[in-house]
């Protein structure tokens, strides 16, 4: 008797392939193919009005080096992403620790901190644009307590602080909830054992909590960095990249080059540079995870 071709193992494998097919096609068609096309565009000069594509080789890539605006754009991107990630993760963790206990009103607080997540980015940013005006609500509130507020969006440094803070307030709820989940996964016995050993709060947090939630820390770090590098609506609505180039992050610069100045070749080149950054950062984190992520399964 011949064994049937469709063994359980083979049938399983076929099901596996079929199950992942839609997702795989999505990634190939809507991500990998476009990345390939972006590489091709970056080697061309494209006159939109004439519909002419001219092969220019490495010219767009060489233009990166000659772009007088690029250093400030990269600087703003680093400050913005770094600021958002650090603030978002530390605030998210702090909120989670504060809300990871039972007391009356804890649900109300969780709801309040999470609520901006469900407000659309554009509506959120529009409102902050009002509040941050020189004659807006924030300065009015500050003047009540005797502080003479500054003109937030008209100064490069405060404008950057403003876009970082509004972005963090809007999105920290997600990280807060992810951390809450992680904290609830830490077995209570570990805390009790540590307390019996006479460890203080700080020591417990550092020695027990942090290592145990480090996998979540890695996940949130990746999600937050990717999100920060793609923050477009905030910038477009709140500052349009100004004043000067102070809040022109790479994503916004790509949009300007490709869709406002109609320089698709150079826009694609910039976008690919952005992709390289994201890849390198993720790779770096992935490599470093062995050092600081406690258990890896």
């Amino acid at each position: 008797m011949k064994a049937p071709f469709w063994t359980t193992r083979r049938r399983d494998a076929l099901t596996g392939y079929l199950f992942i097919t839609p997702q795989l096609i999505g990634v190939v068609v809507f991500v990998l193919v476009p990345v390939g096309l972006a590489v091709w565009y970056s080697l061309n000069d494209w006159n939109i009005f004439r519909g002419e594509l001219t092969f220019v080789g490495g010219e767009n890539w060489a233009a990166l080096l000659d772009d007088p605006q690029l250093p400030s754009v990269l600087g703003a991107t680093a400050v913005f992403s770094g600021g958002v990630v650090v603030l978002n993760i530390s605030l998210g963790l702090a909120l989670a620790v504060m809300l990871n206990r039972r007391f009356r009103g804890v649900t109300v607080f969780r709801t309040m901190f999470f609520s901006p997540v469900v407000v659309s980015v554009v509506a959120w940013t529009l409102v902050w644009g009002f509040l941050l005006q020189d004659n807006g609500g924030i300065n009015a509130a500050l003047s009540v307590v005797g502080i003479d507020g500054t003109n937030w969006l008209q100064n490069g440094n405060t404008a950057m602080v403003a876009v970082i803070v509004t972005q963090v307030i809007r999105s920290v709820g997600v990280n807060m909830v992810l951390f809450l989940a992680a904290l609830q996964g830490v077995p209570g016995e570990l805390y009790e054992a540590a307390r019996i050993d006479g460890a203080g709060d700080a020591a417990i947090f550092r020695r027990i909590t942090l290592p145990l939630i480090s996998p979540t820390l890695l996940l949130t770090a990746i999600i937050t960095i990717v999100g920060a590098l793609q923050a477009f609506a905030q910038i477009a609505v709140l500052t349009q990249g100004g004043p000067g180039l102070s809040t022109t992050v790479l994503v916004y610069y790509v949009f300007q080059q490709a869709f406002e100045f109609n320089d698709i070749g150079y826009g694609s080149t910039l976008a690919l540079m952005l992709l390289t950054f994201v890849m390198l950062l993720t790779l770096l984190q992935w490599q470093l995870r062995r050092k600081w992520v406690f258990h890896e399964n």
Binding site: V28, V31, P34, V226, Q230, A271
Partner: peptide, 21 residues
């Protein structure tokens, strides 16, 4: 891993080619 790459590619990289497609 191939699928995960989809998480890392910013939409700004793909938006122009996708628009053309």
């Amino acid at each position: 891993l191939v699928v995960l790459v989809g998480l890392l590619v910013p939409s700004e990289v793909t938006i122009v080619p996708l628009f053309q497609m």
